[in-house]
Design a protein around this nucleic acid. Sequence first.
DNA 1: GATGAATGAGCCTTCATTCAT
DNA 2: GATGAATGAAGGCTCATTCAT
Lengths: 197, 197, 197, 197
Amino acid sequence: MLVYYRCVRVKDDIKRNAIIEATVSLVNEIGFAASSVSKIAKRADVSPATIYIYFKNKDDLLVSTYVDIKTCLANAIMEDFDSDTPIRDAVFLAGKKLYAYINKHPKLFYFTEQFANSPYTDLVDKDKIEAPFKPMYDRIQEGIDQKIIKDVPFELLFAHLYLPIFNLVNPRLHPNFKATPEIIDISMNMAWDAIKL
Amino acid sequence: MLVYYRCVRVKDDIKRNAIIEATVSLVNEIGFAASSVSKIAKRADVSPATIYIYFKNKDDLLVSTYVDIKTCLANAIMEDFDSDTPIRDAVFLAGKKLYAYINKHPKLFYFTEQFANSPYTDLVDKDKIEAPFKPMYDRIQEGIDQKIIKDVPFELLFAHLYLPIFNLVNPRLHPNFKATPEIIDISMNMAWDAIKL
Amino acid sequence: MLVYYRCVRVKDDIKRNAIIEATVSLVNEIGFAASSVSKIAKRADVSPATIYIYFKNKDDLLVSTYVDIKTCLANAIMEDFDSDTPIRDAVFLAGKKLYAYINKHPKLFYFTEQFANSPYTDLVDKDKIEAPFKPMYDRIQEGIDQKIIKDVPFELLFAHLYLPIFNLVNPRLHPNFKATPEIIDISMNMAWDAIKL
Amino acid sequence: MLVYYRCVRVKDDIKRNAIIEATVSLVNEIGFAASSVSKIAKRADVSPATIYIYFKNKDDLLVSTYVDIKTCLANAIMEDFDSDTPIRDAVFLAGKKLYAYINKHPKLFYFTEQFANSPYTDLVDKDKIEAPFKPMYDRIQEGIDQKIIKDVPFELLFAHLYLPIFNLVNPRLHPNFKATPEIIDISMNMAWDAIKL
DNA sequence: GATGAATGAGCCTTCATTCAT
DNA sequence: GATGAATGAAGGCTCATTCAT
């Protein structure tokens, strides 16, 4: 978890990060609905009032936490993205990086999964979150143009490419299943079969 | 919504169903966390105390609602399942039935999606929910044995087969995307490419 | 204080009155701003939540208390009002009844004085409160028509008639002055000089 | 509002006056109870901490504001007071000056009215506030001695003289009534009838 | 002198649940 | 079986005040 905030903020606001980390860890343990502001404050070793210095209200705290994590994930995946890499390799690499990130920061990931299916999601500016993936979108479009990838809506391509990973990797959904690197590799191969022409 | 409970329960307990329907509709409107017992009671036109006659507590109400819906969905998908249907057709038919159900009962579906990523899921007996799918599992295993389908864990097969549909169909996740029957058909074709040998 | 609520409600809602009485006595002791719902609840020997069964919110509690008292005061003053009494006697009698009521229920009176100069007053339906005084208004108008009373706006007449009593009787405004029946009698005589033609 | 503080304090402490003005305007807008120190600070464009440099605490701020205004009002009324003016003229002149001040600084006036009926009043040194009126008291006593004015306690005289003005002029108490100079003149004439022998 | 950040206590309100009827 | 009333606990949030800078 330590690595995470270094990627979001350079300034020293230690307290803001203490609050965000407390939020993530608490939501992971007792769930979204049960995570009250005062409990988060206690875990962050901070007064409830202090939270309202850094965040406008509870919604803002939760949404900010989500956006921070998603931004961080996007950066992790797109880091060193090279437009010259063959499309298949690029797609596979992204999958591996996604898995690596989730594996490294499982709690951050579980938080986003809970968040994404709650009404809070409606408060998020989706475009802002997807912006970093622009180069990837362009690369995929090239693949379509070159008749390497099926000419179907992007939503379909991404759903088949990376959704299985999000799912398989979530222990809440698969208590008796362990997503190993090998499993991810198989999944990516299947995904490639799904999207390739 | 009317059709739904007829498939799960016997007639008389109208009140129980009123409560469950109120739960579903309220969770859809104001979300999981904000749906209190008394609000549900008000919407069901029932005293809060009455809810505790039909359900042990709030957790039980929520979990029961989820299990009811999931059971109903399973029945809808597995209805008229024929072990003699060619595997590819069987798989496609299930996808279509899944889509049809979601399309017919969107609110029931959104409820389960919110529920599935909350800690409440941990209280659910997963085996009981997956039981109705046993014939389908067997059929897929046959496909593997006959070298029609890739020999990979079931989790991978199902993740690639049906997860994209769950995702594409959810307006919360795709506010600007409409999953038409054609889209579903494309998705199933891609899924088949993913799982076929 | 016991007499008071009997005049407002015939039903047995003891609890509502316990809450209202607690409100009045607390506001008298520690003031308007410092009187929190939980303190009122404690004094009424009731859970804070219970207050919200009888009143929509804190505003409603305060406003209802005020309206109850004002209505009660109006009834006390207008009780046995006789349109045939000579105007001067009628006016004096009302002054005496006003004083008698304040003297009997000083705490109710102090509450209304605090209330009347707070922004809460804006929430009160003034017409409803003044309705019981209609016969008195009519009687005064007769006095004007008969050239007994000065032909000036009612507001001026009432301000000169009864405002001094409200003021003199308030120990907050006159810590070292005691408004005796004799004082009130003098005040009424002065008031009569002010309004008579 | 600008004229006001010049009469109370010396030039330099601009900040103190900014705070007091913010207090007055805020109390007028959102009321006494809702006016918190931090809101006042924000309106005065000052840090909450700064307020505690100029005032011991919130009570002190409120009381000081009140005393400032009341002192200013007293000065305005007693300015150019001439002991040789005939008593009736003196009394009328004071009423006019009172009205003029209220009309010029309505917000200052509304603040004092809210304040006067709150428990804060108990913290005020009444004698200090009434001191400037000593010459007026003396003049009235002369009137009594000369058998021009009724020989009744001063409280009664003042209550009948000026209270109606305070009341009539307050839009909170009379939303549909406008106190014009003519109304004030009538009121003063009535008041004179009330106190004259 | 002036401040932004920080805080424990308390605010109003609603919670999940029970119980006498 | 069904309920309205009742509740202690907790919800999110703001308070008056202090302190290091």
